[in-house]
């Protein structure tokens, strides 16, 4: 918990760090890292109910497109909120349809949803179709650090949501749903409501991240915005960092993006070979993720549910 606060504090004061000539680059990289981290946090929110979503990329894409299309009329914040709302609404429909699916069946159903959504956006006229959609920068590009603080704000929001859910009674219900639906029902947990609510929160966050991404890259195309790679990244990070926690996805996201960037700069050709190797070693040697490493050291401390 203290560590989470420390990281968020660092995020907020990061732009005043004396990074010299590296500053602009690190700020740019940090923005993309924040966006991916929010996506990872959002995936973890749903994973806490035992549901493994591969639709995170679709919510991201829906949020990105909705924000990109509406920002000229609604402004930066309005566009982002609409993006989150569209993503949330679609998750409600998807959630209702897939309520009874579990495990890999749920995963593939959400993957299917994602692929269908991408095709729809690809075929629609108003989205710019395959050619893509130009997006205006956040706040009209007038504020230099605007993009950075927007991404940082969404990161803070994601972390707070994750923390709040972890401390609320919802987390017990989620854990119960994860252990097994039958058990949960016996315990009197309204599994349906818990799952839908988690899905709603998760997709809204993912949509928000998508909107910020759109305003950062300034250009959306269906294959990029709805990319399956992003859905996979959203699940890789929490596993790497530590599942069902806030610290795990937060630390995992920032570290993995930093690692990937560093490897790309240092090794260039074939840096992803090393990246893959690191993922494998991580699973073999720290099965509980980064957070597990942390906890193993401080075993004496009482079980801290929220990291």
């Amino acid at each position: 918990m203290r560590l989470v606060g420390l990281i968020l504090g660092l995020v907020l004061v990061f732009p005043v760090f004396p990074l010299g000539r590296w500053q602009a680059f690190t700020l740019d990289t940090a923005q993309f890292a924040f966006i991916v981290t929010v996506l990872a946090l959002s995936w973890d929110l749903l994973a806490r109910t035992g549901q493994l979503s591969l639709a995170q990329g679709a919510f991201f894409g829906l949020g990105a497109y909705a924000a990109g299309l509406s920002a000229p009329a609604l402004g930066t914040i309005g566009g982002l909120l609409l993006g989150a709302a569209v993503a949330a609404l679609s998750s409600l429909l998807l959630g209702l349809a897939t309520l009874r699916l579990q495990g890999i069946y749920f995963a593939i159903a959400t993957l299917a949803f994602s692929e269908v959504m991408r095709t729809l956006v690809l075929k629609a006229e108003f989205t710019g179709g395959a050619t893509g959609l130009p997006v205006a920068p956040a706040f009209g590009g007038s504020w230099v650090l605007g993009g950075y603080y927007l991404a940082a704000a969404v990161l803070v929001l994601g972390v707070l949501t994750s923390l709040w859910v972890g401390r609320s009674r919802l987390s017990y219900a989620q854990a119960a749903a994860r252990q097994g639906e039958a058990v949960a029902r016996v315990l009197g947990v309204a599994v349906v409501r818990v799952k839908l609510l988690s899905f709603l929160l998760s997709s809204a966050l993912a949509g928000l991240a998508g909107g910020v991404y759109a305003m950062k890259t300034l250009f959306l195309s269906p294959y990029d915005a709805f990319g399956l790679g992003r859905a996979v990244e959203a699940l890789v990070i929490p596993i790497f960092g530590g599942l069902y926690t806030t610290l795990g996805p937060l630390l995992g996201g920032l570290l993995l993006v930093a690692l990937e960037t560093w490897l790309r700069l240092e090794i260039k050709d074939g840096y992803l070979v090393v990246y893959g190797l690191i993922l494998i070693l991580a699973i073999l040697f720290m099965p509980k993720g980064l957070v597990g490493l942390w906890r193993a050291r401080g075993k004496t401390a009482k079980e801290d549910r929220n990291a």
Binding site: A47, L52, G103, V232, L235, V236, I239, F240, L243, L272, V273, Y275, G276, L277, I278, L279, I280, A282, I283, L284, P287
Partner: peptide, 15 residues
């Protein structure tokens, strides 16, 4: 856990 196995095979795939 199943998720760990998935991350492992994903890492192998990237590699």
């Amino acid at each position: 856990p199943e998720l760990n196995q998935m991350l492992l095979t994903f890492g192998l795939s990237v590699l």
